[in-house]
Every structure is written in C-alpha cells, then in structure tokens.
C-alpha cells in the first residue's frame, strides 16, 4: 500500500459484482430484508439468536460468491475497539449474579460478564458482516433507486425526494474525486520537498501532513463541482422536478420469498431462547 493511496481500501462499502442470485434481487427487497436483519441482530438478547443471524449472514456471503476471507478482512479494523468493549464488559458487568470467578474491589469477573462480552463481540461481528454483505451485493446506484422507490410516497406530502436522492448520488460520485485530488496534491507537495515520504511518525506529524492539503482540496473540489454543475446543466438537469428513471424494477415472487425468508430468520434471531 502506497502512502499516497487515499481511496478507501476497506472492504466495507465496496460493491463486488459477481452476478449472484443476491445481486439480482430487487433493491427494495434488499433494503427491507437487510434492514430487518440488522434490526433483529441489534436488538436480540439471545446468543443463539445472534448465532443464527451470523450463520445466515455467512450463508449469504457464500451465496453471493464473495470470498469469505475477503469479507472477514472487514472485521480487522474495528477489532481493537471491540476487544476493549468486551474486556470492559468482562470486568464491569452490572449484574454479575452468583457464579463469580474473582473479585477485586469494584472489578468483578463473572461468568455472566464473560457471556455478555462474548455476545457483544458476536453482535458486532455479525452486524459488520451483514453491512459488508449488503454493500457487496448492492451497488450504490441500486441503493439509490431502491431508496427512491421506497421514498416516493413522501413526494405526495411535498418532500422533494428526487433532489434528495440526486444529492446522495453526486456525493458518492465525489468520494473517488476527493481521494484522487488529495492524492495528487499530496504528491505535488511531496515532490517539492514536503515531508510525506518515509516512515509515518505518529499521529501528530500525520495530522500536520494533512493540514496543508485541506485548502487546495477545497479549491479543486469547488472547481470540479462547478464543472460538474455545468455538465449537469448541459444535459438538461432540473428541467422538471420529477425525472423519469431508466430502471423499472419488478417486484416478483423471488423478492417476496427473500423478504419472507429474512423476516423468518430475523424473527428467530430476535426471539430465540436465551441460555
């Protein structure tokens, strides 16, 4: 990895078109289905339930034909935080119950605490994997179209959902823009003697490296957004409040089945017995 690559290389938020059955699902079904799953995983208090959720998500990853190893890589960046939270949970669980392993003042290590810590890690793992899976199989544009369709009813009460969706779309388009601009400016400064190369020397010097990037990043972004606004104008944007869309999604039995299946899994996750 070069020090000048700013395009996020995290696995979360990447669309990987493998053309699997999940990819071909109606985006509305995916948004609703994954939404249900995430709610269930978040609010389930049962380890078995969350475990079922995890199995379902892993099955989904296999079904989507994304290498499991690649998906699991997404767990690495937040891992330290999860471990800290789990350790806090181990030692400061409020209702330690009777099976206490040892006690030192306010610090209590109990079986209940350990179990609860494990549950939290499990829950975060499952959520992160579910979110990655959603992004693997749903392109940003599908997400936008799905949202657009789901939000259409709001038009009737006078909320301009079209503009809202366009804002999301252009914002997404600008992410690689920003990464690219930041890279070029950093290189331009480095090649003329700014301290970029070599080993990174801790947080302070890294922040100090970023500061001189910010203003040029602003000006180049403004310039580019001006050009883009012009290009949008040139292609007759804003002619009517409601644009049409090339995509017509038909919600078929497969999508209905998908939602029903996820609804069932979500229900099991949520209401599975506690141990």
């Amino acid at each position: 990895m070069s020090e000048f690559e700013f395009l996020p290389s995290a696995t979360i938020g990447q669309y990987i078109p493998t053309g699997s059955v999940l990819h071909r699902m109606d985006p509305r079904a995916k948004i609703v289905g994954f939404g249900l799953m995430m709610l269930a995983i978040t609010f389930s208090t049962s380890k078995i339930g969350v475990g079922i959720g995890l199995i379902a998500v892993i099955a989904g990853i296999l079904l989507s034909r994304i290498p499991l190893k690649f998906a699991l890589k997404g767990l690495l960046p937040p891992l330290p935080f999860m471990i800290i939270i789990a350790v806090l949970q181990f030692f400061f669980y409020p209702n330690p119950g009777t099976s206490i392993i040892f006690r030192l003042g306010p610090v209590v290590l109990s079986v209940a605490g350990i179990l609860s810590g494990i549950l939290i890690i499990l829950r975060f793992f499952t959520l992160i994997l579910a979110i990655s899976l959603m992004s693997f199989v749903t392109s940003t544009s599908e997400m936008i179209h799905g949202l657009q369709k789901l939000l259409t009813p709001l038009n009737r009460i006078g909320i301009p959902t079209m503009d809202f969706v366009m804002v999301i779309q252009v914002t997404l388009r600008f992410i690689p823009f920003l990464a690219q601009s930041a890279e070029r400016i950093a290189k331009a400064q480095a090649s003329r003697g700014a301290e970029w190369g070599g080993k990174s020397k801790g947080l302070v010097s890294r922040v100090r490296q970023i500061i001189p990037l910010i203003i040029p990043l602003f000006t180049t972004s403004l310039r580019r957004s001006e050009t883009m606004a012009l290009a949008m104008d040139a292609r007759a944007y804003g002619f009517k409040a409601n644009r049409t869309s090339m995509f017509e999604y038909t919600f078929n039995w497969r999508d209905a089945l998908f939602i029903l299946a996820l609804l069932a899994i979500a229900a099991t996750t949520l209401f599975a017995p506690k141990i």
């Binding site: 050009t227 883009m228 090339m246």
Partner: peptide, 30 residues
C-alpha cells in the same frame, strides 16, 4: 456538449446510469 476533462462531467456511479442521465432529465419513458 462533450467537455475536455471527462471525469468532471460524469454524474452517476455506474456507466450506463450516467448515459441515462440526460434522457431521464428530459422525462422520456423507461
């Protein structure tokens, strides 16, 4: 109009959707 720097005039995050941008603005049928 086709501009000099192509990356500044592409609006959508997928090629075919960008191509559809103009006709969609003109409210043509899907």
């Amino acid at each position: 109009m086709v501009f000099q720097h192509p990356e500044d005039q592409i609006v959508a995050t997928v090629v075919e959707e960008d191509v559809a941008f103009g006709p969609e603005n003109l409210c043509r049928l899907p």
